[in-house]
């Protein structure tokens, strides 16, 4: 099995909301001190889904990360977890894309780096939360796509997926090659082992530009985007919290009940 996983580097979504700042003039997120770069969490689960398949059958897991200012230790984490090869697609011409231009660039890169049976992505990236890339790659490649998976298995040339829906899950099957996007219901991604980390340190990533992957830069990044970002801003919350002060927790609980009753909330 040739498995390709798309991983995006993002600012840590677990960082405290107060540390989040934007540069309004540039319509961009301002780098905040103390906020680390990480692999987008759903993409780590995409790696986990790929490695579970590799655990069961002979497979090569290739990871693609697209972006500039990539941090080596961050983007190498999938290798430390057990992926085989890393491709870094770095080019200013690929930045600031929308669903369509990003999917075009990734699909072009996937075709370039070799044969593929299964492409796995996170359901959405933790920065722009768009959730279109997986479907877009499939449409570009003319193959099937299943979104929001909690389980991914390859059986007899088909991929069987449990797809999360509001009140449970659907089991669906698509022929290979296919794209699957995964959700947190898949379960925790594995830790990198010490051996994995040492192995990853020795592995060299293959760095490619837009020209190297053969992308038409009129169709990539901002130039190829159909959706235009007009304005990025921090929402104003008028929250005013009435704190219940009491001698001990039991009194606080009783006071809270009284407050809610007085406010006719209870």
């Amino acid at each position: 099995m040739n498995i390709v996983v798309c991983c995006k580097q993002v600012p840590d979504p677990e960082a405290p909301p107060a540390s989040f700042k934007i540069d309004a003039a540039a319509n961009k997120v301002a780098p905040a001190p103390g906020v680390n770069q990480v692999i987008s969490p759903f993409d780590e689960q995409a790696i986990e889904a790929a490695l579970r398949i590799k655990d069961g059958q002979e497979s090569t897991v290739r990871v693609i990360s697209m972006g500039t200012d990539l941090v080596s230790d961050v983007v190498k984490k999938p290798l430390a977890m057990g992926a085989d090869e890393l491709y870094l697609i770095q080019d200013e011409a690929l930045n600031d894309g929308d669903g369509i231009s990003t999917a075009y660039a990734l699909a072009t890169a996937i075709k370039k780096i070799g044969e593929y049976d299964l492409i796995i992505c996170g359901r959405q990236a933790a920065d722009w939360d768009v959730g279109q890339t997986g479907v877009g790659i499939a449409e570009e490649l003319g193959i099937a796509c299943v979104t929001v998976a909690k389980k991914v298995e390859v059986v007899d040339g088909k991929v069987r997926v449990e797809r999360v829906v509001a009140d449970g899950y659907e089991v669906v099957e698509v022929p290979l090659p296919a794209v699957v996007t995964v959700s947190n219901e898949l379960g925790e991604p594995r830790y990198a082992t010490l051996k994995g980390i040492m192995g990853a340190a020795k592995k060299q990533a293959t760095v490619m530009s837009a020209a190297d992957i053969g992308a038409d830069t009129a169709k990539t990044g901002k130039a190829g985007a159909k959706s235009k970002l007009l304005k990025l801003y921090i929402p104003v919350r008028e929250g005013k919290c009435e704190m219940i002060e009491a001698e001990d927790p039991a009194e606080a609980g009783a006071l809270l009940a009284q407050k809610l009753r007085e406010a006719k909330v209870l």
């Binding site: 989040f20 159909k226 959706s227 235009k228 304005k231 929402p235």
Partner: peptide, 13 residues
């Protein structure tokens, strides 16, 4: 966007 830390206005071209 950014998990609800920010809002963004878009227009389709």
């Amino acid at each position: 966007v950014y998990g609800g830390n920010a809002m963004a206005d878009y227009v389709s071209e």
